[in-house]
């Protein structure tokens, strides 16, 4: 998986912007290729960009170094198809656990973000939810906070929709 080497390179540079762009690029390929591993890698890369942004992850210097080493080693393994992305997911979840975050961790939030992106691209809510393994209700809450719908063309007027609703109700 060639993208894993790009991710490794950008992670070493702690370039959050390049990591985020790469995450989107991987997601497009994963979506077109119907490749779950690519979708999972896109989520991991997004999480890495978020982790690099936050200073508190680096407060425990010893743990941070161990984390960086593990991520780098396993990105290389994933790049050479010797390991699956789930290993990287586990390392990221462990990092949050170390800082007392068990439920709403960075990986979970990245899954929601990527699910919302897939939905914005035209994937149905149920399918987007399955692709990122997040309940529909959580995706809907995230979608509600975005401008996704505001940016799209209006197909029917509100008067027409209200007329349809009044007829059936």
């Amino acid at each position: 998986m060639k993208f894993a080497l790009d991710a490794l390179n950008f992670f070493k540079k702690t370039d959050t912007k390049l990591l985020r762009n790469l995450s989107d690029k991987i997601l497009i390929d994963g979506f077109i290729e119907k490749n779950n591993e690519l979708i999972n890698l896109s989520i991991v890369v997004h999480s890495l960009s978020k982790i690099c942004e936050k200073d508190y992850y680096k407060k425990d210097g010893v743990y941070w170094k161990t984390f960086v080493d593990k991520i780098q080693a396993n990105l290389e393994e994933v790049a050479s198809d010797k390991a699956q992305v789930i290993i990287l997911e586990k390392i990221i979840v462990e990092l949050d656990n170390h800082f007392g975050r068990y439920k709403n961790n960075v990986l979970h939030r990245s899954k929601i973000r990527k699910g919302s992106t897939l939905y914005a691209w035209g994937v149905s809510l149920t399918l987007a939810s399955q692709m990122v393994k997040i309940p529909e209700i959580e995706l809907m809450k995230q979608i509600g906070r975005t401008k996704i719908v505001d940016e799209e063309a209006q197909i029917k007027t509100i008067s027409e929709r209200l007329k349809d609703a009044e007829e059936i109700l």
């Binding site: 809907m140 809450k141 979608i143 719908v149 505001d150 209006q154 509100i158 209200l162």
Partner: peptide
């Protein structure tokens, strides 16, 4: 409802 994920734009809400 929009904040809960209903795909309606702010413009459509105002029109309603």
């Amino acid at each position: 409802l929009k904040f809960s994920g209903c795909a309606i734009s702010s413009k459509e809400i105002n029109e309603t």
